[in-house]
């Protein structure tokens, strides 16, 4: 799936309409606890008219129901990096689960109760001498059915072009300066698989519970552009 030019994506939807949420926010708050972006009271665009028209035609012709659309939005909103963090924390505390995760990450995610649909997931493990990084150079494939929608930077030209050629320079921009003796393994999601980095468990976490460990697992640590937080 495609990517966004850094200067154009979403920027033209207003940022400064805090005065009026209007009557049209009945579908609730976003998963981050914020109201949906306030597009509803800005001028109707060509593409928004197309979305409304396509949606209505699909409903009118009996191909899709309004309830299915609402349910799909709800299902997608329910997916977030906390799902991946729970998987990672389980792998840190349960060696048998970790073995199953590395063997078949889709099955291991489902085993924890996550609805990941048809996602084909591969977990790649960071160790003392290996660091993994995920990218999609052809579009912006991402393990969205586990982690939710990707961050904007993941879809940019800059990330997609450079991650495969100068991953260490890209990682430095994310604040991660890897030693030369760490092997970097970049994974380009070119086809049917999606990838999850299993970060290394931070030192000094021996006494933490699985739930406390999960709180250390950031989204970026599961893409490979970051490391887990320190306790």
């Amino acid at each position: 799936m495609p990517h966004d030019h850094p200067d154009h994506d979403h920027d033209h939807h207003d940022h400064d309409h805090d005065h009026d949420h209007g009557p049209f926010h009945h579908e609730g708050m976003s998963p981050s606890g914020h109201p949906y972006r306030h597009d509803n009271d800005s001028p109707l665009t060509y593409w928004q008219r197309m979305e409304i028209a396509v949606r209505e035609l699909l409903i009118d012709k009996g191909r899709i129901t309004a309830a299915e659309i609402a349910n799909q939005i709800e299902a997608m909103d329910a997916r977030s990096p906390t799902n991946g963090a729970a998987v990672v924390a389980r792998a840190w505390t349960d060696p048998a689960f970790k073995a199953r995760l590395l063997h078949d990450a889709s099955a291991a995610s489902r085993e924890m109760g996550f609805d990941i649909g048809p996602l084909n997931l591969i977990a790649v493990e960071n160790t003392a001498d290996t660091h993994n990084l995920i990218v999609c150079t052809l579009c912006s494939c991402y393990p969205r059915n586990l982690l939710g929608l990707p961050p904007d930077w993941y879809k940019t030209r800059a990330y997609r072009t450079r991650a495969v050629r100068e991953p260490r320079a890209v990682l430095r921009e994310f604040g991660l300066d890897l030693p030369a003796n760490t092997t970097v393994r970049v994974h380009d999601s070119t086809a049917d698989m999606r990838y999850l980095v299993l970060p290394a468990r931070p030192a000094g976490t021996d006494t933490l519970t699985e739930r406390e460990l999960a709180a250390l697992v950031t989204r970026d640590s599961m893409i490979g552009t970051g490391l887990p937080l320190r306790p």
Partner: peptide
């Protein structure tokens, strides 16, 4: 450089 700013999605985009 990789631009780091992020946005939440609008309802029409989620649709």
């Amino acid at each position: 450089p990789v631009p780091m700013e992020s946005h939440d999605f609008a309802l029409w985009e989620k649709r």
